[in-house]
Nucleic acid binder design. Structure first.
Lengths: 132, 132
DNA sequence: AAATTATTTCAACATCCATTGAATTAGTTT
DNA sequence: AAACTAATTCAATGGATGTTGAAATAATTT
């Protein structure tokens, strides 16, 4: 009964999803997926002002979705890149959580669900649910 | 050059991700994944007040993630269920968007990226990017 | 040292959003 | 019709959030 993916609370998951749930951040992430980039280039590419980009990049970084490093020659440039491990992890999580095989279309309440076997804690996927 | 998944703007995607980016809604969705359920049972199961549940269920429904129907015998009961097609669609989208194979770790700006081939519009995944 | 470049930080604003308690609707039972 | 039940709607509040313009850092170049 070992769990492959690390257990995370829904609060933690919501933090990452919140970071993703913005059109501009999705655009930024999509651009970053195509190559390491920096503020100025994202500006040219997406048309967003530098300070706004800086803000969104910080949100993405705080959520652990991207990393940053300074140029070794000219330290004025900061390169942002997608965190490969992170996106692989969340890709898996999302795939598991939304796995159609999990779906149990039984009725548990009301007149229609009166003679159904109730859900027990054992039915819950441990990798997704945590007791607060 | 046909596209399997329908094209969606990042604005549309952000709407769905916003609906997901809440701890309580994730809990609700996770419970719904295990069987059709209604407000009162979600209340017992999650400990959230009925009116708050009603609010979150509406958000999820507006995002197209769940469906609802009244009991055929006792119309006071409303059953909520995960929309199978919707979660299959978003599962695929998420898997495609976060596909590690998309990652092109090249440097496009600054001194380090001076002699790299720039990104062209053709490199963009059409199913993910939209103009405006 | 002064000017320039890349990026971030700050302050302010407007808007959205989760939560709460009370009132209301829809439907059934007595 | 009155009482009861399941669920929703309403109004209010407090906090988080995206955006903007200006100022400030950090690092390099002249």
């Amino acid at each position: 009964m070992t769990i492959a993916t690390p257990t995370r609370t829904f609060d933690e998951i919501a933090v990452v999803l919140k970071a993703l749930a913005d059109p501009n951040r999705l655009r930024i992430l999509d651009t970053l997926m195509q190559g390491v980039s920096c503020n100025g280039e994202l500006n040219e590419w997406l048309g967003l002002p530098p300070n706004l980009l800086s803000h969104h990049l910080r949100v993405l970084k705080k959520a652990g979705l991207i990393t940053s490093r300074r140029d070794s020659v000219d330290g004025r440039w900061i390169y942002y890149a997608v965190d490969l491990d992170a996106i692989a992890l969340w890709r898996t999580w999302f795939g598991d959580f939304f796995d159609p095989d999990r779906l149990q279309p039984r009725c548990l309440c009301g007149p229609e669900g009166e003679n159904q076997t109730p859900i027990t804690n054992l039915n819950l996927r441990v990798s997704h649910v945590t007791t607060n």
